[in-house]
């Protein structure tokens, strides 16, 4: 009897010892493996983000054109940019114009449709699929398709407008209409933002709506005092990523307009691309890249600064 207890006791202590040594050995194991397994991602960051940033910072201080020997010119590129390069300012203006139109429009459309799709309706899955479809269209195919939709003579838009007896437009072929046209086109790709909104909407606790309803609040009050405040973190996320995205618009300009007419759609990254890969001015293109980085940085920081005034974070949500 006592033997059995003793045996059991030694078995327990042995197991406990094994466990303890296992745990301490394990923390050593975790330290060793942790860094090792994270290494590919760390190398990726260093080689494809950090190093290029550093290289382009150095290049931006040179006048290097491919085929020539680079010479150090200090901040000349940056001075030139602001004082003697009308295309830089033009492209910055065009990009800002596009951002100011496309971001609010897409966010509003995406939010509205997410609200609709958050309701309990029959055939919800079908609607969700339909509304997500445009997002699946690859951007090159999208540009080709919209070029045809915008066609002034036979395109979908002008044909329809003509039938309705409404005034037509030259869309992307008009200096004044090109950016609004591309903004209109961008709103068709609301799907990804919509999905993120939808996920957010589904996370809004039901009891908050019930509380407003008990206080006699209608749909508008529920939206104004529950949905909107609870969705501000998601809205903020979408706002920041959308702006970073619209500042990098390229495909539409390259495929649809080649920056025209009369540079009215020379977006910043399109200008950067032509400077680097058509004119081979790698030094100046690097300066353009850094200017873009700083501009986007300033906007992002400003947004983050403003966020504590309008973004609502639930207590205890931060880990």
């Amino acid at each position: 009897m006592t033997d059995e207890v003793a045996i059991r006791r030694t078995a327990v202590t042995r197991a406990a010892r094994k466990l303890r040594s296992g745990v301490s050995g394990q923390s050593r194991l975790e330290r060793r493996w942790g860094l090792l397994l994270a290494l590919p991602a760390i190398i990726g960051f260093v080689v494809f983000s950090l190093a290029p940033m550093a290289v382009s910072a150095v290049l931006s201080l040179t006048d290097w054109t491919i085929g020539s020997t680079p010479s150090f010119v200090g901040v000349d590129n940056y001075v030139h940019m602001f004082s003697q390069d009308p295309l830089f300012l033009k492209s910055l203006g065009v990009t800002t114009y596009y951002t100011l139109g496309a971001v609010p429009l897409t966010l509003v459309v995406a939010f509205a449709i997410a609200m609709l799709l958050n309701a309990k309706v029959r055939g919800l899955g079908v609607y969700r699929t339909i509304y997500y479809l445009p997002t699946l269209v690859p951007s090159v195919a999208n540009a080709v398709l919209w070029l045809w939709i915008f066609n002034p003579d036979f395109g979908l838009l002008n044909s329809t407008l003509r039938q309705l007896g409404a005034p037509t437009s030259n869309w992307v072929f008009s200096e004044t209409a090109v950016v609004p046209s591309l903004i209109l086109m961008s709103s068709w790709g609301f799907g990804n933002i919509m999905v993120i909104f939808l996920a957010g909407l589904q996370g809004v606790p039901r009891h908050l709506y019930e509380a407003v309803a008990i206080d006699g609040g209608g749909a508008w009050r529920q939206f104004r005092h529950v949905t909107l405040p609870m969705m501000t973190p998601v809205l903020f996320y979408n706002l920041v990523t959308s702006i970073i995205g619209t500042f990098q618009v390229f495909n539409q300009a390259y495929i649809m307009t080649q920056g025209g007419p009369n540079n009215a759609s020379t977006f910043y990254v399109y200008y950067l691309y032509t400077t680097a890969f058509t004119k081979s001015e790698m030094g100046y293109a690097s300066a353009l890249a850094w200017a873009l980085f700083v501009i986007v940085m300033v906007i992002t920081v400003a947004l983050f600064r403003s966020s504590n005034r309008w973004v609502y974070y639930e207590m205890g949500a931060a880990r």
Binding site: V55, I244, F247, A289, L292, F293
Partner: peptide
């Protein structure tokens, strides 16, 4: 896995999300 500096490293890597990829075009 717990290792020293893990969260700092992750934060730095995550900051790369804010980096406009177009900026890296020329040097890459």
């Amino acid at each position: 896995l717990r290792w020293r500096g893990r969260n700092v490293v992750f934060g730095i890597l995550l900051s790369g999300l804010m980096l406009p990829q177009a900026v890296l075009l020329v040097p890459t």
